[in-house]
Design a binder for these strands. Sequence first.
DNA 1: ATAATGACGTGAT
DNA 2: AATCACGCCATTA
Length: 84
Amino acid sequence: MKDFADNVRSVVRQIPKGQTATYGTVAAMAGKPGAARAVGTIMKNNFDPTVPCHRVIRSDGKIGEYNRGGPEAKRKLLESEGAI
DNA sequence: ATAATGACGTGAT
DNA sequence: AATCACGCCATTA
């Protein structure tokens, strides 16, 4: 494919463990500042396990959504990694 | 190709 | 602090 989605996945893959990034930040890293919503859309359709999409949270500090068990599972994972 | 949707973000109320 | 309204962009119907 080679589009914004691939770029976003690459960026998210680089997020270190125990650390989190906001959708807006990821979008900016991918080269599309302001495309936070698009990042969410992409993540929703992303099923690649090499991409720690659970490290991506909202800029308000909220967890956001997750397609692998809901926001609760996501929060649990983040706490398990030390990203409190 | 157009319209509607949603793992967001910021500003106004 | 909480809620409402508008904008933003990729995806889906």
